[in-house]
């Protein structure tokens, strides 16, 4: 109860403080430079120079402290030792280059980068296309979209149950092993199978992200002009040609957006690996590897920061691409 009063109190105080800030600072500004009287014109001009910064102030402060400063601080820390006391130059990066676990993480991350965005986009496009004209299409979409609302940890529990293993003499309670033994094979501990276990983890993320891809691509497919489709049908295009030769080329832009968005999710993937294997059995990825170095017995913030910056560098091309697109749209 106490906790709720605390939370409710904070909301109230927070909202009140925000409102006071915006309203109060505007009020002061307006009374300093009243928009009437002898200098009305000059006053309005001056007030309009200052006002945007009053509106933007809190946001800039928070963004600066929580997102911009940390990037700089991470760079600094990555050049220092475990607790930031001593300058070590590039030692952390040299360590990264030689660490087998890091190599494993990078390779796994690259594998995730290839598999997850492509399959999510593929399934998303497939579902978007086939549910488009179905009478129960919106129900089907809802069902496939649903995993988006489930946390990665919840998804981890759900899928760990699917992958559950029992000895060959017992009845299998995991769906996958039940099907597998039903086909006459021996049950497998899927999450420890070298190399392939990565794909069982990826399946979880594909399961979550397909709904996202579907929603965006379905809107894009609807946006294609009817005329091109009609023309193609009149020319005798079959449904396959219609889809691959007419529709898909027209939504390349959207496919690219979906692909890059999922790519970013993949680069940061943490929870799934963390709760399902914790990076054991050759499934380590960068985000979990970084968490490892941050929270293991004696945390090494230098190395942790170096790993975080590697993730940042991998995200950078997408960031630049996004900014370019946004600027083009603004002009």
């Amino acid at each position: 109860m106490e906790q709720f009063i605390y939370a409710a109190g904070t909301i109230l105080v927070g909202v009140f403080a925000c409102v006071t800030w915006f309203w109060g600072s505007n009020f002061i500004l307006d009374s300093m430079y009243p928009a009437r009287g002898a200098h009305a014109g000059r006053n309005i001009k001056r007030a309009n120079l200052i006002r945007p910064w009053l509106f933007l102030g809190p946001a800039l402060l928070i963004l600066g402290t929580y997102l911009v400063y940390p990037v700089a601080d991470s760079i600094w820390r990555s050049l220092h030792d475990a607790d930031g006391a001593e300058w070590v130059g590039m030692a952390n990066y040299r360590w990264l280059a030689s660490d087998p676990k890091f190599r494993e993480s990078i390779l796994n991350n690259l594998m995730w980068l290839v598999v997850v965005p492509s399959l999510s986009t593929f399934f998303g496009l497939l579902v978007a296309q086939i549910t488009d004209r179905l009478r129960w299409g919106s129900f089907a979409k809802s069902m496939i979209f649903m995993p988006m609302a489930i946390s990665f940890v919840g998804a981890g529990v759900i899928w760990k149950f699917v992958y559950d293993y029992r000895g060959a003499d017992q009845e299998q309670i995991g769906l996958l092993n039940a099907l597998w033994t039903g086909m006459g094979f021996d049950p497998q501990t899927w999450l420890t199978l070298p190399f392939w276990n990565n794909f069982f983890l990826m399946a979880v993320l594909i399961w979550i992200q397909t709904g996202f891809a579907m929603v965006i691509l379905s809107a894009a497919l609807r946006g294609i002009s009817e005329e091109t489709i009609e023309a193609a049908i009149l020319d005798g295009a079959n449904p396959w040609q219609l889809f691959f030769r007419i529709k898909v080329p027209q939504i390349w832009g959207t496919i690219a957006v979906v692909w890059t968005t999922i790519t970013i999710v993949v680069l940061k993937v943490f929870d799934i690996v963390f709760v399902m294997t914790n990076g054991q059995w050759g499934t380590q990825v960068l985000a979990n590897f970084m968490y490892d170095w941050m929270f293991r017995g004696s945390p090494d913030y230098g190395r942790g920061s170096a790993i975080a910056l590697v993730i940042m560098i991998l995200v950078l091309p997408i960031m630049i691409w996004n900014i370019r697109n946004a600027r083009r749209e603004m002009n």
Binding site: Y66, L67, A308, I323
Partner: peptide, 17 residues
């Protein structure tokens, strides 16, 4: 443009600082 850029900053970078 900055806001668009910050959209994709991995929050891992922020954790330690």
């Amino acid at each position: 443009a900055c806001v668009v850029g910050l959209l994709v900053v991995p929050l891992q970078v922020s954790l330690i600082p």
